[in-house]
Amino acid sequence: MTAALRPFLRHEAILFVLLVAALFVLAGQSDRFFTIANLLNQGRLMTEIGLVALAMTFVIVTGGIDLSVGSILGLCAILLGVFWQNLGLPLPLAMGLAVLVGGVAGLVNGLIITRFRVPPLIATLATLALYRGLAEGISQARSVRGYPDWFFVLGQGDLAGVPTQLWILGLLTLVAGVVLGMTAFGRATYAIGANETAARFSGVPVDRVKIAIYTASGLVAGLAAVIFVSRVSTTRSDMGTGVELDVITAVVLGGTSIFGGRGTIIGTAIGLVLIQALKNGLALAGVKGDGTIVVIGLVLILAILASNLFSREDG
């Protein structure tokens, strides 16, 4: 690791200590928290957010943001149902197409951002409304139900004792970690976030990298949609509302700078687990929902303050 990487390893270290501390405290509050069954179940509940957060880490490292992921999730979920029930396609094909639509939606984001030089915040704010509107329009306010049993394996079943979707999340986390940390593509991602102009003049294919990242963001949102539908066994046009905020919270808590240039997949993973552990652990300890949100807000502020403090001493 180079010296440049050290400050954000520091953030992850702080976060990890915070996570371990939180786990200890929460385990002390309820004897039902630190059980294999509960932890695996929490893994199941956080998969959709986790998948989207992986791609979001790339997006935010480039200095961008993707607010449309929740709407893409809703759109893909609805289309999965429409492809399967209304168009009569075989379910596996419908699943594939739904993910593909997510990719196309992401590609549209990428094209708007790179070709028309629209700031990502504005572009994806617009598509947030656009995709949700399409989802609601296409669904004609009907939900699609009655999927075959095998489909539920994805969202409700187990593979070797571990929730099926957790395998997918684990695999993709590994892939994302390797791509961001060890490949030329990952280095290009950091370069764009640190200084886009410099990156452009250094021969980094800035637009192509960005388009690839936003497309990937759409693809994982599509994948998350399929898993979500399988988990709750129905499709609705309001699925995934507000997901973008949960995702961005996890990524930022994980130490990714909202200004770009900094961030790691491992940080995002820890941020994600910390939030899920707090939500679950506090609920089991008898804290009500509104209290939990307050705690998560405080932890986010504290983690970022602490990290700023340490990195300032460093410099």
């Binding site: 509940l45 679950n280 609920a283």
Partner: peptide
């Protein structure tokens, strides 16, 4: 769903 899930776990 998450709320109900947590209350199932809490017994």
């Amino acid at each position: 769903i998450s709320f109900i899930d947590n209350y199932i776990t809490s017994g």
